[in-house]
Design a protein around this nucleic acid. Structure first.
Lengths: 200, 200
DNA sequence: GGAGTTTGTTAATGATGATTAACATCCGAG
DNA sequence: CTCGGATGTTAATCATCATTAACAAACTCC
């Protein structure tokens, strides 16, 4: 019965609404192709109202990218936790399904994450890159258990290639059902990683 | 010994220079992130000089995208000309090597091609999309000979996924030599396409 | 050796757009 | 009530461009 919160909920909602709308717009037209007005309009308020929630347009993008990279990294760390070679295969499956699920559920976020890193201020860019690197390293760790003979540089390049494959979702949207697409991407990605054991 | 050309060469060179410089800048910072001044500076002339060669910034991007799509489509048509199922496998190899060669040689063009279609005026956008579609269809035709049981929608999605894999080049630059990267991408892409025969 | 075309240059011009100011509303707490 | 904070609104600011004007050098061809 003492004084409690009722205040913060609306703010949180607005912020989330704005981030979501902005993600869609950034994905469709690119960071510089979207104005503050556009974003405001997309959530039904107009223009400078955004400054009540974010310190600026760059800050908005920064938060978006940090959130995406952090979610992927967290998910990666959670799913890859399998220092056991016996289950490395299961860990890879988990990483794959997790990434596919994310990509199919949030195509706009994937697109923004791939395209807009350059528009973020230096310091945050480093943070995002660090999170991305950590996520990649989760994959590389699992892959190196499956393919001990393969040099890490090759595993890293292969991981990026698989991300490119999985992240193609936003470009080939619509033709297949999400389930069919998930199956297809999973099968292709697994197959794509199999030749890693082959000697150069 | 009669009057001949000496006029057009410099113009052509300038245009090409500008297109190349602009491609690099667009790839690095995005269409809206690059100013006419930037592009001019990159070729050693300043600003509005570009209007002697292009009618505007959009026209420049338009020409760039049309050129890329047309080169890919032409290359696709040339390499896939193999209505013969016996050699469909060779045709796929040719398409793969051709695309990989292009992606490794022109990472900036690949990046621009993937990112900036939205910034082109409607009419040209349709033309670019048409060329892209034709290129994809070359792949789908070859793939459908290799996997007759696979529905076209699935083949199209798979093609986009392979493009995503191959076009990951600009993101994972540096770690591997171009040859090693080409081999890796080729092996991964071929493997990725093999599960297409599998029933759903 | 000079008229005309090609390329450039440096000042406008005009929009667009991010950010800030100044001024309302709404709502919960005391 | 009514004060204060949270949210919005609209009307400045202030920059940053793309694009155009007006003017110059260079080079071609006669």
């Amino acid at each position: 019965m003492t004084t409690e919160r009722t205040v913060k909920t609306p703010t949180r909602n607005r912020r989330a609404e704005i981030l979501e709308a902005a993600a869609g717009l950034f994905a469709a037209r690119g960071f510089h192709g979207v104005s503050i007005e556009d974003i405001g309009a997309a959530v039904g308020v107009s223009g400078p109202a955004l400054y009540r929630h974010f310190s600026g347009k760059e800050a908005l993008l920064t938060e978006m990218l940090l959130d995406i990279s952090e979610r992927l990294r967290e998910q990666g760390a959670r799913l890859a936790t399998t220092a056991d070679p016996d289950t490395a295969d299961a860990a890879l499956d988990a990483l794959l399904s997790g990434h596919i699920e994310f990509a199919l559920t949030h195509p706009a976020l994937i697109r923004v994450h791939e395209r807009e890193l350059d528009n973020v201020p230096e310091q945050a860019r480093r943070a995002v890159r660090r999170l991305q690197r950590l996520y990649v390293e989760e994959w590389v760790t699992v892959l190196s258990e499956l393919h001990p003979a393969c040099p890490p540089a090759r595993l890293r390049a292969a991981t990026h290639a698989v991300f490119g494959l999985l992240n193609s979702t936003p470009r080939s949207a619509g033709e297949l059902t999400p389930e069919a697409m998930a199956d297809l991407l999973g099968a292709m990605a697994r197959a794509a990683l199999s030749p890693l054991g082959v000697i150069l």
